[in-house]
Structures are given as C-alpha cells and as structure tokens.
Write a protein that binds this DNA or RNA. Structure first.
Lengths: 189, 189
DNA sequence: CGGTCTCTTGACGGAGTTCAAAGCTAGTGG
DNA sequence: CCACTAGCTTTGAACTCCGTCAAGAGACCG
C-alpha cells in the first residue's frame, strides 16, 4: 500500500486524510507465484497495482496457445481494460509470475473515491497517458521488427527482467513460439 | 469546436464560461486531404481532436515502408503520445486522409486550462481509458488473427470506413502489404 | 528420486513478402 | 473537358521467416 502512495505522490499531493481514506477503501492482496487474479469468463471490476513482484496479462486463443499481452512489474497498473470499463466478462487471465502483492482498485467504489479525492482524477489521467504511450510504442515494435530483432532489442533493454520470467512467457510476449526463441538463442551463442 | 464540446459533454458538464475559456485557448484548423499536421523529427506539443474528416498516424521504417498505427475519425483524439508527453522529436507523421478540421490542444496551455476547468481532468482520464482499452484490443487482433482474418473482421466491422481510405493505408494498418490485400480480395470475389 | 514443466533440436510446411511489370484511376493543367 | 501523368491496384514467381509437430533432454519441486 505504501508503494502505491509513493507512486501517487510522484504525480499529485496526498494529504494524510487521503491516505486514511484510501487505506480504508483499497485492499492489499498477497499473491503466490502462478496464482490467478483473474480468469477468462469472469467479471473484472478491478484495476491492479503491482506493489511487489510481477504479473502478466494473457489470453488463450482457440488453438489453446497463450499470448502474453502485458507484464506488470512493481509500480505498474495492469488489468483487462475492456472488461473493467464495460463490465462484460473478461477474455483474459491475470497471473502472478512471482510471489508478491497487489493493491485492488475497485470500480464500484471508484466514483466515491474520486469525489472525495479529486486529485486522483489527475493521477489516473497521467498514469493512463503513460500506459497508452507505452502501448503505442509496443505496437510499433511488434509490427516493424522481426522476431529476432524484437528479442535482441528486449534483451538489451531489460537484461535483468529476461532472467526473471520463463522463456515461454517471453516468447509469447514478443510474438513468437518458444521453439523459435530457443533457435534464436542457439544462433547467438 | 462545437463537436468537441459535444464530445466533452458526453462525460462531464461544461458551463458556458468553460466554453468561452476553451474557445479562447484552443484553435480550430482546417486540413486538406493529404496535408500533414506532424512530421517525423518535429516536436509534437499538440493533441489533435478530429472534428471533421479522418486522420491517420503512421511512421516510415528504415526500408521506407509506411506503417499506419491509428486512424482517427470524427470524435477521436489522435497524436504521438510519446512525443507529446516526453517533449522529444516525434517518430511519426500525422496526415489528413480526408479534407476536414481538427482542434489543437496545446500541451503548453494544458496545465492552465486544467486548473481553470478541473472537470477536464476527468474528461481526459475517461478518453484515455477508452483509447488504452482500444489499443489493448487492437494488439490482440494483430497477434492472434491471420492477415486474412483481420481483413474480413475489419471489413465486417466497418464496411463504410473501408470505402473511405485507400487500400495501401488499410493494408499497412492491418499489418501486411498492399499486394497481399489485393490477393485476399481476389480470392473472395 | 520420480513426475511434470520447461527448453532444445530438426524436418517440413505455409502464410505472407519481395520484386517486377502491367493495368487502372483520378487529379491537374492546358 | 480532355489528355497526361503520377499514384494506386493487380498479378505472378521466387523466396523467407517462422509455425507446427514430434521426440528427446534438462530442470525443478514435492
């Protein structure tokens, strides 16, 4: 929870009473490695702030193949936005990649909190601005680079992160099969 | 400009004085077909509201191939978010696909306007929420469907829009070459 | 240890690209 | 209002990246 306050204070000022309000309204949830926070077909009234550890958002296509669409590490928000906004059943799974903790932001208490702490409107606007910008960037990498280029680029940009996740998750995030990732690595060695 | 007010009023209430403030701070710009609002290498201190017509955001890769990353029709915001947020030179082009008009939202007057009309924080939060959700959706289509499936899906979803844009733009948006689009169409006929 | 994930390796196949050339369309100026 | 040109679309052949399938080798956890 403290991690969330710190994150918020990078963008807005929080008074002590705001923190009290937030502490009362939000809940911190510990998650074990591989545990699911959301599964396909369920409603998703939450936005998740990764306080500690690492989560991933993925879906399973009709051939049974997993596709990771987002990793969320410490200090990122992550959720199925369509299901969060629209209230329909989700088409995604949200899973803890590592043991850690998330803060649950509940859509059903969102309006009340935003009224009591108007600065949060600004906070979420800025957070969304950055995540939309990141998505735009990711789209560009996915469409412009070859699989091998994406791997090397990602590997150079986040060398420590690559060690933290299994290769099949990384492959599905980078948009190719685990077999192909294995072949890239064999070439480079 | 009136189109923008209507869009804002779908999410928040605007007082007459707010509209006066906005009218003074924002500018409406007419654009001719094929005209560029932003070019690679330039700064991008604007967010663009498409008031009438259709714009597209694209980049050119090192082989000289254009990739359309977003279409913005009436009632959508469109810009290079990285360059807008970060203030670096843009890596994108923003071009009018049809003759029309856009409203320019200037980052340099953003803070002042948001202070004078706090409800706008909420408006932009909700707009960004929806556009981030749309990007998440688009990512899924791009990674999970074959080129041919994407074409048919898009064609069924937006049959009237497909008529409005040249095929090479559509192909680059759907993630394949104009030649391939031509072959899909030949198969179906 | 034993079983279940995870990673590697190789042969084959297919979706989509590249290159080149020809046909078509639409905008522009005379 | 027609003719010309530049840009857009079509078509085909060769090629490539990467997926699929299958089988085996590690690696991790109870």
């Amino acid at each position: 929870m403290e991690a969330l306050f710190q994150h918020m204070e990078r963008y807005i000022k929080l008074r002590e009473e705001d923190k009290v309000l937030l502490s009362g309204a939000l809940s911190l949830r510990e998650v074990k490695k591989k545990e699911h926070l959301l599964e396909e077909g369920r409603l998703c009234p939450y936005n998740y702030f990764v306080s500690k550890g690492c989560c991933r958002l993925y879906y399973v296509n009709d051939k049974g193949i997993e596709h990771t669409v987002q990793f969320g590490i410490d200090g990122w928000w992550i959720t199925d936005l369509m299901a969060y906004v629209g209230g329909q059943p989700s088409g995604y799974y949200l899973q803890a990649v590592e043991t850690g903790a998330v803060v649950l932001w509940d859509r059903r208490t969102e309006d009340a909190l935003l009224q009591q702490i108007p600065a949060l409107e600004r906070y979420f606007r800025l957070v969304l601005l950055r995540s939309a910008a990141a998505e735009q960037q990711r789209n560009r990498y996915l469409s412009d680079f070859s699989g091998e280029e994406r791997y090397h680029h990602f590997n150079n940009s986040f060398p420590e992160f690559v060690q933290r996740v299994p290769q099949y998750m990384l492959a599905s995030y980078l948009g190719f099969t685990p077999e192909f990732l294995s072949k890239i690595r064999a070439r480079k060695a």
